[in-house]
């Protein structure tokens, strides 16, 4: 009955945990959405994450589609508010307080220490998606091609490459 409340709760928790941005919270998102709550299958999660990569703006707007799968448009709204409002309120408050800590040497320690943790969490995010998305030679080839494109070709819109992956999939895998 209270699926709506669960959606709000899960995404509010993820919002507060999303230190380092969307990719860092991806493994936890997958764990809660697929394994704990069974709102989506592995494949659905991969598909919806992929959809999120072809739209502009903040890349975790895909949480709305997850909410939509649970309780429709109201669920989408709750996922949106849950995922963005708690972190936003913290940012607003911290931005007003931040200047009080100007010159504290711990500020630099915090950034220096959290940087590798965030990189580790992003790598874990890539692994979480790869476990469902990489299956067979064609998907490996697409992933490597996009990796090389993003990594070595500057000034290329990554969304174009992701859409390109979709076109190759459509032609080769249907």
């Amino acid at each position: 009955m209270n699926e709506n409340l669960s959606v709000l709760g899960v995404f509010s928790l993820l919002s507060v945990l999303a230190v380092g941005g969307g990719a860092a919270v991806l493994p936890e998102t997958k764990m809660l959405v697929v394994e704990t709550h069974h709102w989506l299958t592995d494949d659905q999660f991969r598909d919806i994450y992929g959809l999120g990569q072809v739209v502009p703006g903040p890349n975790m707007l895909m949480v709305m589609v997850i909410g939509y799968h649970v309780t429709g448009f109201f669920g989408a709204l709750l996922a949106y508010l849950g995922f963005f409002v708690p972190a936003g309120v913290i940012s607003l408050g911290a931005s007003r307080l931040w200047d009080h800590f100007e010159g504290s040497p711990w500020r630099a320690s915090l950034q220096r220490g959290m940087a590798p943790l965030v990189v580790g969490l992003m790598a874990a995010g890539a692994i979480a998606i790869a476990r469902t998305a990489i299956d067979g030679a064609m998907t490996v080839a697409i992933a490597i091609a996009v990796f090389l494109g993003v990594f070595f070709v500057k000034r290329i819109n990554p969304a174009i490459l992701v859409l390109g992956g979709g076109v190759v999939g459509l032609i080769a895998l249907r």
Partner: peptide, 10 residues
Amino acid sequence: LIGVGAAAVG
């Protein structure tokens, strides 16, 4: 979407 997912990993 399988192609998009693989591309997202890359």
